[in-house]
Amino acid sequence: METTAAGVVLASGAGTRVGAALNKVYLPVAGRRVVAWSLAAFAAVADLGVLVLVIRPEDTALAGEVLAAHPGKVEVVTGGATRQASELNALRHLAPRIEAGAVDAVLIHDAARPLVTPALITEVLAQTREHGGAVPGLAADDVVSLAADGSVAARLPGAIRVQTPQGFRARPLLAAYEQAAAEGFLGTDTASCMERFSGLPVHWVPGGVENLKITYPHDLAVAERLLAR
């Protein structure tokens, strides 16, 4: 049996802080909709044989427009009420292939990060397969702790600002998410759920300074200038 990795692009959020009338991942930026950039980056990684797009039902037409212009095959899954529920829906969609050993690793990415590169995806996948889990991030040298009285205390050594894609070996990832669902645990991201329910070591991969997340209107302007290069 040929083994491959799967990429999951999450596009099932609303993104209300960007101030647009539609889901922010379908806003235009540098000639494409935001989500199309992530799909193109994942499709350029040879070791990723499966690509899944998680969408909201009300975005079906917009997703169809994006996929009509995408040259490769993308499997579409409907998301849930939370980010974690959307991830679980994608993992359950992949479950038969995970359990059969056809998919050995899963990388989960936020579609609101359109500047992710194939090189970063490739490195996260390589470290995932070697260590069990990998997340990209930037050193957060300006993060400090607070004392009990609210005063600023010492700088936190070793802190990072985590990005996506976050990668994990497929079987432990699926098992952790099923256990989280059974116990009603809701994490902040993929890594937090794995930290709670899996003993896999998670390796840090230096992230990209330009791998920004579209959250506010000015982020679109920045992404436009960077992608236009």
Rank of each mutant, 00 (worst) to 15 (best):
G133M: 04
K24G: 03
H203Q: 15
R129C: 06
A44N: 02
G167V: 09
P157H: 05
R17A: 08
C193D: 02
L10E: 07
V152M: 12
V106Y: 07
V25P: 01
I55G: 01
H131Q: 04
H218S: 13
T4L: 06
L10Q: 10
L27C: 04
N211Q: 07
V106T: 07
L48S: 06
A221H: 11
E58K: 15
V152D: 04
A147K: 14
A170G: 08
V74D: 12
E2K: 08
V76Y: 01
P28V: 08
E178F: 01
V29F: 08
H203T: 10
A81Q: 05
Q84M: 00
A11D: 03
L67V: 13
V77S: 01
R129G: 05
C193L: 08
A63P: 13
A112Q: 05
Q127K: 15
R56H: 06
R17K: 07
A69F: 00
A43K: 02
G79N: 01
A176D: 06
Y26T: 07
A46E: 15
V152Q: 15
E183R: 14
V74K: 13
L48V: 15
A148Q: 09
P136W: 06
T3G: 03
D219F: 00
G133V: 02
G79L: 01
E195N: 10
A154I: 07
P118Q: 09
L173A: 09
L227F: 05
V202F: 00
E123W: 09
C193V: 13
D59C: 09
